[in-house]
């Protein structure tokens, strides 16, 4: 069995430090299994987030050798490294070891109203909202976001502006604006066209590079930027 060194950046609430662990690795073993091995056999105080173990919940995103990835989907031997530097996501406050504070991230999501907005839906009389396959295709890819925070972690615009909505939030806004059933486009455009919105993006496109679901957040941001430009011009003449 091969041995890989997990060099983990830990944080105990006061100090941040690196700690090394030797992890025996077999073929197919994931990074998350490695972290569980450490917790169960070497140091029970190691803190990390994980839930579904199948790339659905987005809880276990960490940075490995600088690049964010889902620990549950990453096979250790595929990384082809004898030593892995494992750190918490960037651009978010670290709570403990590999756990970061997502409160702000989700508050930003709330700001763009990531749900269908309609004025003619009455829950006492539910109606089916029809959509053609073409209309579905328009936004479907962007529904796959699992809100793992990888894109936000690597965004250089979010590095210098804490209030920047970030790629995941703007992608969520685009996902609903592009949905033919939705009627809340203007509300969302108002939210993303501020100084903390789409104009903060400088197209490093790293969000698209690191997205574990390959949903291309940078593309959604640019599409949203175009819509926001039109919205702001119309607003002047209104």
């Amino acid at each position: 069995m091969e041995e890989v060194i997990f060099n983990i950046r830990r944080f105990n609430g006061i100090n941040s430090y690196w700690q090394r662990f030797k992890v025996p690795v077999k073929r197919g073993m994931t990074l998350l299994e490695g972290l569980y091995y450490i917790k169960e056999n070497l140091d029970g105080s190691l803190a990390f987030r994980a839930s579904c173990r199948m790339g659905i919940c987005g809880s276990c995103a960490v940075r490995v050798n600088g690049k964010p990835m889902l620990a549950c989907e990453t096979q250790i031997l595929n990384l082809k490294a004898k030593k892995l530097d494992i750190e918490p996501l960037d651009n978010m406050r670290v709570l403990k070891d590999l756990i970061v504070d997502f409160d702000d991230f989700f508050k930003k999501h709330e700001a763009v109203k990531p749900y269908l907005i309609r004025d003619d839906v009455f829950y006492s009389k539910p109606v089916e909202l029809l959509q053609t396959p073409k209309e579905l295709k328009e936004y479907y890819n962007f529904t796959l976001c699992i809100k793992c925070g990888s894109c936000y972690s690597m965004c250089p615009a979010a590095s210098t502006r804490g209030d920047y909505l970030g790629p995941a939030t703007i992608t969520a806004a685009y996902r609903f604006c592009a949905d033919s059933r939705d009627k809340g486009k203007n509300e969302r455009l108002e939210a993303v066209s501020g100084t903390n919105g789409v104009w903060r993006c400088h197209f490093a496109a790293e969000c698209s590079e690191v997205c574990p679901k390959k949903i291309e957040p940078a593309k959604a941001v640019q599409k949203m930027r175009k819509s926001a430009a039109g919205y702001m011009i119309k607003k002047i003449f209104r």
Binding site: G66, R161, A205, E206, S208
Partner: peptide, 17 residues
């Protein structure tokens, strides 16, 4: 937030960054 050093990441980033 990591500040201005977030603009100049080298490790783990793509050619785009």
């Amino acid at each position: 937030m990591v500040g201005v050093k977030g603009w100049f990441r080298i490790r783990g980033v793509s050619l785009q960054s």
